[in-house]
Write a protein that binds this DNA or RNA. Structure first.
Lengths: 199, 199
DNA sequence: GTCTATACGGAGATAGAC
DNA sequence: GTCTATCTCCGTATAGAC
């Protein structure tokens, strides 16, 4: 059964549209970005967009799920590490690092968080990532507790939720404060986590 | 020069509309809230809205500036307090407390933060509040530094910015995680700040 | 597969009677 | 001052030629 055209070319073009849309969503937000803008940025005609995506929301979902996950690999690595507190710090740093990588990333994530509040489908995508994040943190914290490396009064799940919130803080700051120094924020985050865990 | 009607009644009705709009903005967001919804919630006809507000954005700005400021009074009080670290903690708690007061508050603030990214007028309103917040924190931290009550390596301005970010984290968490316990988050925030400041 | 043109719906804001 | 009715613009998505 022969395909009509080259599937690779189609996928590449789809990816191109997706990337252009991501930049627009990050700077202008989801609702204020029009499909016409996306088409203009991608260099295609308005109608042609729908040969690649079924709807505007489908583009947004593709953008959100497009970021590949190396988090589980990172988690395995840190669960096997020697120093349990350092392992938590490394994992937290890994989670926050994307926010510092490119200015558009935290903006896009923040936008997704708000949209998730209104759309179950988007909430699902983010919820899964968040659950994995917290589960990983909980496991690492439990290990640190067992090793007696952190304050024994800390509850692993509650602390994992809080550390996740602190990571969110870095995203929020870098998304909203253009003048913030990403490296400084990451170092402040590390000092914060280290001090919070006690030990 | 006689007024046409009772100004007090007009102000009360305006306030009523504003409150109804605030609830809608918090739950559905600014862009997804329609003027028709606001009118329905407030029990007025669609056209009548514009006798109280010039535009939809004017309503949003009124909502944002409507929250009265007792922050400066709180700051004066804490600048005169005996224990400088406790003063910082009290001030931080005061800044974060509104997030825990009512679920709609952090949602509304988050919505405003995103809109600020796209509208200079909204950015101004939030920027002024933010600047005051950081200035207050910087003053309190300088005082704690002078008293030798916190880690001498800390830079007051940078630390103030970070504490402000941490407060933002509580807002973000309570806005996005319906299951979060506000009291727990506030206590985690206090532990975090105390540990971060060292001393 | 890509284009141009347009249908369709909805949202903000206005007009004018009462 | 408040209402009903409506205007106008704009954004998504579709139709149909090439």
């Amino acid at each position: 059964m022969a395909r009509t055209v080259d599937p690779a070319r189609h996928a590449a073009r789809r990816r191109h549209i997706q990337d252009c849309a991501a930049a627009l969503f990050a700077t202008h937000g989801y609702e204020r970005t029009t499909t016409a803008q996306i088409c203009r940025a991608a260099g295609i005609s308005p109608g042609n967009l729908y040969h690649y995506f079924a709807s505007k929301k489908a583009i947004f979902l593709a953008v959100l799920t497009g970021d590949e996950d190396d988090t589980s690999a990172m988690l395995e690595q840190q669960l096997a590490a020697d120093a349990p507190v350092e392992a938590v710090l490394e994992f937290v740093t890994h989670l926050a690092a994307p926010a510092a990588a490119h200015p558009a990333v935290p903006q896009l994530v923040l936008e997704a968080m708000l949209q998730a509040h209104r759309d179950p489908e988007i909430a699902d995508v983010l919820g899964q990532a968040d659950a994995a994040e917290r589960a990983g943190l909980t496991a690492l914290l439990q290990r640190a507790l067992d090793a007696g490396a952190i304050d024994t009064e800390l509850d692993p799940a509650e602390t994992a939720a809080w550390l996740s919130t602190l990571v969110g803080a870095v995203f929020l700051d870098l998304a909203l404060q253009p003048g913030s120094d990403p490296a400084l924020r990451l170092s402040q985050l590390r000092r914060t986590v280290r001090a919070y865990l006690g030990g």
